[in-house]
């Protein structure tokens, strides 16, 4: 009798197990389909996505510099990300571009650009070209953009992307950013897109009197604050900037 009940129980549990496995398989396939990169590109060239990005990610968060907003609305960000990530190019997130590097979140790019307060005649040096996107945004504001990338493969692909997108005025050099670009110095602005534990003395030397330097602080994926360095009257001062201002929450007494 007991054996009979056991056999029945085994059969029942087998049926339950099979059903459960089918359910798991369905969930897994759904997830795979969801996370797989989309192979087809929207036919509109992403103008709508770019406009949406400028409105919701930049303007609504306090980026007000008109020139920067115009530059962000013009540069085709999707051309500066890996093909497989083009659908996410305008999302509110950094994206991997290979070699452990990222293309910064649009908001950070815009915020850093605005903080440089560039004029059309300004000369700007970028350390860490990455995909070339930041250089392209800078090139919308001035014709004097110099950019350096230490990783040869990234330097080559960024050069190709910049040229393909029409940013031919950008000067790109593969090499160690520590030494800066002495032959083109002094610079009105320096933008260091890779965080470092110290600011290389040659870069400070190549910054023009009255010039501005901006450095992100944090992991490549999550900038926590930005550092604005200014050189005035032989003094170098820094100002920590938070992309989002932190307000301590005080409890009611």
């Amino acid at each position: 009798m007991n054996a009979g009940i056991d056999l029945l129980n085994v059969l029942k549990s087998r049926a339950v197990t099979v059903a459960f496995l089918w359910a798991v398989a369905a969930v897994v396939f759904t997830l795979i389909a969801e996370i797989s990169p989309c192979r087809s590109e929207p036919a509109n060239g992403f103008e709508q996505e770019r406009r949406h990005m400028v409105t919701t990610q930049l303007r609504e968060r306090g980026v007000e510099d008109v020139a920067t907003l115009r530059a962000m609305a013009t540069v085709p960000r999707h051309l500066f990300v890996p093909d497989s990530l083009q659908r996410s190019a305008y999302a509110d997130t950094p994206l991997p571009i290979g070699h452990g590097q990222t293309i910064s979140q649009p908001y950070i790019v815009a915020y850093m650009t605005a903080m440089l307060a560039l004029e059309p005649h300004h000369k700007v040096l970028e350390i860490g070209t990455g995909s070339g996107y930041q250089a392209a945004v800078l090139a919308e504001l001035t014709d004097h953009v110099y950019t350096m990338e230490i990783i040869p493969e990234l330097a080559t692909s960024a050069d190709n992307r910049l040229k393909a997108a029409g940013y031919t005025s950008v000067q790109l050099r593969q090499g160690d950013g520590y030494n800066g670009w002495p032959s083109a110095a002094p610079f009105d602005a320096v933008i260091v897109t890779a965080a470092a534990e110290f600011i290389p003395p040659p870069l400070l030397k190549q910054l023009r009197e009255g010039g501005r330097m901006i450095i992100p602080v944090g992991s490549p994926f999550f900038v926590q604050h930005l550092m604005l360095v200014e050189k005035k009257n032989d003094e170098i001062t820094t100002r920590s900037l938070m992309p989002v201002r932190f307000v301590p929450f005080r409890r009611k007494e």
Binding site: I150, D176, Y178, E197, F198, I199, P200, P201, L204, K205, V229, I236, T238
Partner: peptide, 17 residues
């Protein structure tokens, strides 16, 4: 090669790292 490390370095320091 090219890695340098100087935590807490003063911005007034002008020599080679």
């Amino acid at each position: 090669p090219t890695l340098r490390y100087a935590p807490g370095l003063s911005l007034t320091y002008t020599k080679e790292i």
